[in-house]
Simulated assay, not measured.
Amino acid sequence: MARALANSHNHRHSGSRYRRGEHRPLRFLQRSAIALLLTVTALVSPAGPAHAEPTLAEIEAELDAQWLKLEPVIEQYNKVHSELKANEKKAAALDEKIRPLSLQANLAADEIGEVANRYYRTGPSSELNALLRTGSPTSLADQLVVLDRISKRRQEKITAVLETRDRYLEERQALDELITKQQAQDKTLAEQRKTIDAEIKRLERARNAAYQSTGYTGGSGASGPCPAVSVGGAAGTAVRTACAQLGKPYVWGATGPNAFDCSGLTQYAWASAGVSLTHYTGTQWNQGSSVSRANAKPGDLVFFFSDLHHVGIYIGNGLMVHAPRAGQPVQMENIDNMPLAGFKRVG
């Protein structure tokens, strides 16, 4: 009985498959095509929100965040490099002082030897005779005493010269040790510079790729007359020079005239007014006197961030000219767009 029922079930099932069998290939192909279409669609369709392409604002924010890490290293390089050049200049100046002192001491020592030699060869010189007129010594011993006095006078001169020279030599030795240390730091930072340059280029490529379709080239620069407030004197010269650099590219370590980094721009602007600034934000901060925001005037240096790693030149009405970062040219910008550290007046 069970076998009969099973055979009956199989017969019905087989019949059912048979009746549908002639349509099965078409439906199978339809299902396969749908599955394939869904697979391809999943591959070529835009990713979900978790993998969405970043917006332009997000790209700029990422670049700004990366730049906050890069710029302090750049300014540290500027600091060490500027100090190294200054100390090398000091060393050269000390060499110029040491060289004639050594020569003077050698000549004086030779002169003493020559006096003694001449005395024993030819008798008292006219110089020695002048001294002998007052004493008229009659023995060789008396004459040697006088000669000794001459030697002592000249030896005193030599001693004074040598003391000065030795003091310079001590300074030179300390300077040599510092230069050696700074040269090592400069080399290390120069190697880091290669890594930084590679990172900057990567960020620029990412930025250019993100903005290529929009034609965006700007940054967050402000528009309007530059300078925003007219000013005369040295500050006016510095401000007008800074304004004349608008649109020029940022290149770290550059001090103009074709490209700038932030402290290079302020150095260049104030150099046009006859004021020498060091190519390093930290030193520029110490080269000026502090002024409040309420008393800030065009030409003042305006610094940002707690470590003072960015600087611009104030042009009035809450605006500055600065070299922002790689990928953004020299531009005007509102000083409230970054954390303000303070103002310094130079000149």
Rank of each mutant, 00 (worst) to 15 (best):
residue 61 A to M: 05
residue 28 F to D: 15
residue 194 K to A: 10
residue 346 V to Q: 09
residue 146 V to E: 07
residue 109 A to D: 05
residue 189 L to V: 00
residue 182 Q to N: 01
residue 260 F to K: 06
residue 125 S to H: 03
residue 66 Q to K: 15
residue 144 L to C: 11
residue 294 A to N: 04
residue 123 G to L: 05
residue 146 V to K: 11
residue 319 L to E: 15
residue 90 K to R: 13
residue 138 T to M: 12
residue 53 E to P: 05
residue 342 G to T: 06
residue 99 R to I: 08
residue 66 Q to I: 11
residue 311 V to T: 15
residue 342 G to R: 07
residue 296 A to G: 07
residue 209 A to C: 03
residue 51 H to T: 08
residue 291 V to E: 03
residue 146 V to Q: 10
residue 302 V to W: 08
residue 191 E to M: 02
residue 307 D to Q: 12
residue 8 S to T: 02
residue 155 Q to C: 00
residue 188 T to K: 05
residue 143 Q to C: 04
residue 93 A to I: 05
residue 201 K to C: 07
residue 75 E to C: 06
residue 58 E to I: 14
residue 186 D to N: 04
residue 117 N to S: 06
residue 168 Y to S: 02
residue 4 A to W: 02
residue 50 A to L: 14
residue 156 E to M: 03
residue 330 V to L: 10
residue 172 R to W: 03
residue 207 R to W: 02
residue 194 K to Y: 04
residue 23 H to M: 13
residue 102 S to G: 02
residue 29 L to R: 15
residue 2 A to S: 02
residue 124 P to S: 02
residue 173 Q to Y: 10
residue 294 A to H: 06
residue 257 P to A: 04
residue 134 T to S: 06
residue 93 A to N: 07
residue 42 A to K: 06
residue 245 Q to P: 01
residue 329 P to L: 07
residue 347 G to N: 09
residue 302 V to Q: 14
residue 27 R to K: 13
residue 306 S to P: 10
residue 54 P to C: 08
residue 122 T to G: 01
residue 235 A to V: 11
residue 232 G to E: 13
residue 333 E to D: 08
residue 126 S to I: 06
residue 130 A to V: 01
residue 330 V to D: 00
residue 83 E to I: 07
residue 343 F to P: 03
residue 71 E to S: 05
residue 122 T to N: 06
residue 306 S to A: 13
residue 79 K to A: 08
residue 28 F to T: 15
residue 66 Q to T: 02
residue 281 T to I: 11
residue 194 K to W: 08
residue 214 T to E: 05
residue 253 G to F: 11
residue 114 E to C: 01
residue 92 A to Q: 06
residue 122 T to C: 00
residue 54 P to I: 03
residue 226 C to R: 11
residue 79 K to Q: 12
residue 64 D to M: 00
residue 110 D to F: 00
